[in-house]
Structures are given as C-alpha cells and as structure tokens.
Design a protein around this nucleic acid. Structure first.
Lengths: 140, 140
DNA sequence: GTACAGTTTTAGACTTTGTCAAATTAATGA
DNA sequence: TCATTAATTTGACAAAGTCTAAAACTGTAC
C-alpha cells in the first residue's frame, strides 16, 4: 500500500485529515470495525464524527481502495488488502479474524455448479471456528 | 423433513402452537426473514409476538433443527435444509436467495490452507451476483 | 381431571449499527 | 486570495435484534 495521500489523489478524492487518518488506521489495524477505527483516528488527530468515519469508509469501499467484510454477529470490518481474492477465518467466540489464501487456487470459487441463471461476480468464503486463545479458555 | 410435532419432541422441546407454526412456515418458505415468517405464522394461527418468533427461531437454530444464514445487507434468513453442506447464491439487488450444492464435492471447503491454529467447524460460502429478473430490469 | 413446577409467550423498553438531511466548514483551482 | 465544490458535523431517525418482568401455557405427578 502506497502513501495515503497519493492513493486519494489517484482516485480524485479531495485530501482531508479525516480521510488520511482513516486510511492509516485501516492499514495499521486490519479487520477493525468502524468503532475501532474511529477510536484510532481520535488518538491520531484528536476528533472525528461518527458520521465522517462512515462516510470515509463508504467512499473508500466504493472506490475499491479498501474492502468491507461483514461476518454474521459482527459489525462490518475493513481491510486495505484488496484485489487478491483472499478469504477469512473468524472465531465464533471472540470474533478474531485472520486472512486465508484462496483455498483452491487462483479464483476458482467463482463457479457454482448450478448458477440458477445468476450472473456471479464474487464468491465470499468465511471459515468459522475457534481461535487458539478461545480453545485454551474453553478447555480450562 | 418429518412432522413438526415429532421433530420438537425428539429434541425435548415443549410443543406449542407458536413453534409448530414457525417450523411449518420455515419449511414452506425457505430463506425467509424473521419478519416474513412472523407474517406467515399470523396468517396461520392469528397472532404471535415479535419476540416469540425470535425465541423460536433461536431455539430451533441452537438445536440444529433449522439453519440461519446472514448475508450482508440483509436480515437473517432461515431454512430447514440442514446437514447437507450446501451454499447460497444471493442477488445483490433484490436479495433473492438460491441453494447451490457444495462447489467442489463432498465437504471439501472445510480445509483452509493456513488454519492459523483455528479449529474450523464450518466453511460458509456465499456467491454474490445478479438474479435473472434483476438482469432483465437493468438492461431495459 | 387437577394442581404444581418450570418453560414459553408476551409487551415494551432498550441497544447496536448504520443512514438521512441540513448547516457548517474545509479543499481545490483560477 | 476568492469562489465553488465537496466534505464534515450534528442530531434525528431506522432496522434488526436483545433484555426483562409478568402472564400464560405445557408436561408431569397425583
């Protein structure tokens, strides 16, 4: 990921302190929620409105600069690793999220056996399980 | 799927009119939301509280009698087809949901390349796209 | 069939996550 | 620097679901 200011200019987006800070927060805290990111941004630039966090995240997502993932039972999470077709591994009990490479090669998951006439543009894969820390907790 | 009353008794669940009606509604309307199901139940038995619909759906889901799926931008949907490892195909514009068989065979999706120490118990796959009806609409 | 104990159901307030809209403020280009 | 355009803020609002306490019901024992 290159410097945030360059990224914004490349997408014809006015450069603001809020956008820079949100971009940096996403880069430094992959899989963070909007709330987490707001907290990070506040530590960096002092203040930001809740709405601005959502605005910025929505714009960045629309432009494809960041990616939004929305696992069940969790608010949306964001990451700046885009365009590499990776998937996610989510802990059922604490929500910890890890990246995993596409399970079967390049971009294979885009083929369902019976497409029902749908035009498929994405195959989203979420592996659900228990993270090492929560495994230890439940054993004790 | 066998008769709803038998199903409830097999799981040591007291048989109530609400539970029977919700179970039947799920069976007759796969991929319906809690709201849809409440509406169906009301047509069948006259009345049910919103909370009861959620209670019943939660109990049935916990017992593994029905399955909950939660695609992004959509309230939870329910189906009584459980235990066969199938996936879903969701229309981005209208939310229409179809079942698709597991893409790569029996239950292969349960293996991620790097499991990060997680104990994986489910691989959830959602294919996103545009359903035939919405394709026609957007072309016109 | 009745009564009891333990669940379910109900009603209504509440929480979380996110959006809408209008007013204010800031960024860009001449 | 100024004007224009766009972004940010504030506060109200919305959807989906949970929490709690009270009332009603189910299943079982008598």
């Amino acid at each position: 990921m290159q410097d945030p200011e360059t990224t914004l200019r490349q997408h014809d987006l006015p450069v603001t302190a809020q956008r820079l800070a949100v971009l940096r927060a996403v880069a430094h805290h992959p899989h963070a929620t909007a709330d987490d990111l707001a907290e990070q941004v506040r530590q960096e630039i002092g203040a930001i409105s809740r709405q601005s966090v959502y605005n910025v995240l929505n714009v960045l997502t629309d432009k494809g600069i960041i990616r939004r993932i929305q696992p069940a039972h969790s608010p949306a999470r964001y990451e700046d690793r885009v365009g590499d077709n990776h998937h996610h591994l989510v802990c059922r009990s604490c929500g910890q999220t890890e990246d995993v490479c596409c399970a079967v090669g390049a971009a294979p998951c885009l083929h369902a056996h019976d497409q029902h006439g749908f035009q498929i543009d994405e195959a989203e894969v979420i592996y659900w399980g228990t993270c090492p820390a929560c495994q230890r907790k439940s054993r004790s």
